[in-house]
């Protein structure tokens, strides 16, 4: 089964990834706007894929991301 969205995409009727609650969506959007991805997702990823390796604390994670954002690889727009 599939349905056509108003925007023309064919969307499967099967299990969609759970949509984020609005407040969480806004909070994550605001954080990512300044280059900060979701910390909980990071911890979850480390736990699942690298259980034997250390995980950065929230503070270390923040500092690491802050440095990375201005490491000069990505420009800013006009």
């Amino acid at each position: 089964m599939a349905r056509l969205s108003p925007w023309g995409m064919i969307e499967p009727m099967t299990a969609q990834p759970q949509a984020l609650p609005f407040a969480k969506l806004v909070a994550r959007m605001a954080n990512l706007m300044v280059g900060l991805p979701d910390y909980d997702s990071y911890v979850e990823h480390r736990r699942l894929n690298h259980p034997d390796q250390p995980v950065m604390s929230r503070e270390a994670f923040f500092r690491e991301r802050q440095e990375a954002r201005y490491s000069g690889k990505v420009g800013r727009c006009c």
């Binding site: 984020l20 969506l25 994550r28 991805p37 997702s41 990823h45 690491e64």
Partner: peptide, 13 residues
């Protein structure tokens, strides 16, 4: 996916 640079992200986010 490394939870840092490469992160699958909600499309609206």
């Amino acid at each position: 996916n490394d939870g840092l640079d490469y992160v699958p992200t909600d499309k609206w986010v």
